[in-house]
């Protein structure tokens, strides 16, 4: 024997087909050595089995269950989100008027409305606008935006519009 037998590393490198420096030496040795040729065929049988695609471990249609679970979770999330927005709107919708009522002279004016006459009402409105005018511009904008937002979302909630009717409504504007 003028050359050592091939090592397991060499057999594996050879079959993996990775670029190896000694590839021609390996091939040369295989030509002359029956022992290594048998080892190589044993390795080839192992590789063949390792490369065979096994039966799927997944049931056919398993993805339907996944998709419906994802859908259900998304719906639950949406439900909670809706609940939270409604709660937020109720809080905003009730605190904003209260805030106005309890600030400044507006509460006094309310008394006038119930007790008195048209002048009382006129006073109330003057005070509301006076109140807003009294604020700086940015607060004024925020408060107005909040009022508009609350009113719009309340309208949207209260009126049973379907999707396309709502879209038609917004087209008008």
């Amino acid at each position: 024997m003028y050359l050592d037998h091939l090592t397991d590393e060499q057999f594996q490198l050879y079959l993996d087909g990775l670029p190896t420096e000694g590839i021609s030496d390996i091939e040369e040795h295989l030509k002359t050595c029956e022992e290594c040729r048998s080892q190589l065929s044993a390795y080839k049988l192992v590789y063949k089995e390792l490369n065979i695609e096994p039966e799927s471990a997944l049931l056919p249609g398993f993805e339907n269950a996944i998709i419906s679970r994802i859908r259900k979770k998304a719906e639950q999330k949406q439900f909670i989100r809706n609940l939270l927005t409604q709660a937020a709107m109720i809080i905003l919708g009730s605190t904003l008027p209260l805030y106005f009522l309890l600030t400044g002279k507006i509460s006094d004016d309310l008394n006038h409305i119930f007790v008195n006459n048209w002048f009382g009402t006129k006073h109330l409105w003057e005070n509301v606008f006076g109140f807003i005018r009294g604020m700086n511009v940015s607060t004024e904008l925020v408060v107005s935006a909040l009022i508009i937002l609350v009113v719009f979302s309340l309208i949207e909630r209260i009126l049973p519009f379907s999707g396309h009717r709502k879209a038609a409504l917004f087209k008008v504007f």
């Binding site: 594996q12 044993a42 390795y43 192992v46 390792l50």
Partner: peptide
Amino acid sequence: SRKLLKDRLT
């Protein structure tokens, strides 16, 4: 693992 499998086979 590949060596083991080959050894067991042979």
